[in-house]
Amino acid sequence: MMRSKPRVIPVLLLKNAGLYKTEKFKNPKYIGDPINAVKIFNDKEVDELAFLDITASQENREPNFEMLRDIASECFMPLSYGGGIRSVDIIREVLNVGVEKVSINTEAVRNPDLITQASQIFGSSTIIVSIDVKKNLFGKYQVYINDGQEKTGLNPVDWAKEVEKRGAGEILINAMDNDGMMQGYDYHLIKTISNSVGIPVVAAGGAGSIQHFVKAVKDSHASAVAAGAFFVFQGKHKAVLITYPDYEVLKKEFNY
């Protein structure tokens, strides 16, 4: 029997002020308006909501603070944001508009001291490090940055240990090969990371059912689960329909 239900977190991808969903970090499909999505998730009483701006790092720009302010003012649940997070000042501004947690990916690799500084200033619980991982032709895992465009040569386990040491309060581990496929998480990757660090690990990339959530938590020891396609697509033709499982359904499936 589990003591409490793990967090189940929709991850919404921002691009040019719209919502999109990718497959393997490619072919972004337009989903709709971010504010409308937030309103729907408010009604569904979602545990937590994550927004990631997928072009901010590529375009070397700061977050869209005006849009973030609008999103935060509508959002009734805890909110995290990632994309274009390059300095302590940017983190401060993101938090000031009403976001609770900030997710750092590209700049965490390029400037690991930012993790240390940010966690000391704002507290570890505020700082998430997002780690995008892809297998090479030989099945070896490698960390990517810049929205999956740039290899780093980093081993994800070594990097996860490093970000924990530097003060990150949470890790979002995203399997690029599984992204948007709805065939299940990379359970081996999640378990390897979860068993290597003491901070919460959020599984992302590939969820297509509640059973995938349960397996990630019970078998791979994830602390929480995140998904995109599962919450925005319906049926084999992937019609756009924003949904979230009923609390009682999750309670039954997680057996708590």
Rank of each mutant, 00 (worst) to 15 (best):
I190W: 04
V225C: 09
Y256K: 10
D53S: 06
D89H: 10
A56Q: 06
Q117R: 15
E23L: 02
T55V: 11
G153P: 00
V109K: 14
V94D: 01
K5H: 00
Q234E: 15
M77G: 03
Q120M: 08
A229D: 00
P63G: 04
F51G: 06
I31K: 11
F138Y: 15
Y185D: 02
P156Q: 08
S223M: 02
D132W: 12
F122K: 05
N195A: 12
L79W: 03
L95H: 09
P156C: 12
F254H: 08
M67D: 04
S87R: 12
K44T: 02
A118E: 00
H237T: 05
T243P: 01
N155P: 12
A222D: 04
V163F: 08
G184V: 03
D147H: 11
F213M: 03
K236M: 14
A50Q: 01
G83V: 07
N36R: 10
L49I: 05
G235S: 14
K238A: 09
Q142C: 05
K252N: 15
E162V: 10
A118K: 06
T55D: 11
A222C: 10
E248V: 10
G98Q: 04
V88H: 07
E162W: 03
A239Y: 10
E164H: 01
I90R: 02
F230Q: 06
K39S: 05
D177I: 08
E248D: 13
G206P: 04
L79I: 04
M181A: 09
T126Q: 08
N36Y: 12
D132H: 09
F41L: 15
A207L: 05
F233M: 10
T116M: 05
G206S: 00
Y185E: 13
E100P: 03
V143M: 07
K215I: 15
G235T: 06
A118Q: 01
Y81D: 02
N155Q: 07
V197H: 14
F51Q: 07
K161H: 02
K165D: 09
Q117N: 14
S103A: 14
V202P: 01
M1L: 12
V46P: 02
A239R: 14
K39C: 04
K15Q: 11
N16A: 13
I173P: 03
A224F: 11
I128P: 04
F231A: 03
Y141F: 12
L189N: 09
P63S: 07
G32P: 02
V249A: 10
M181C: 11
P200A: 14
V249P: 04
T55E: 13
I171M: 07
F76T: 04
Q149G: 10
S80F: 01
D33F: 14
K161Y: 06
S223P: 01
S125N: 07
K252Q: 13
S125G: 01
S125F: 01
W159H: 08
G153Q: 05
A175G: 02
G235K: 13
F254T: 07
V201N: 05
V109P: 11
V217E: 07
F65H: 11
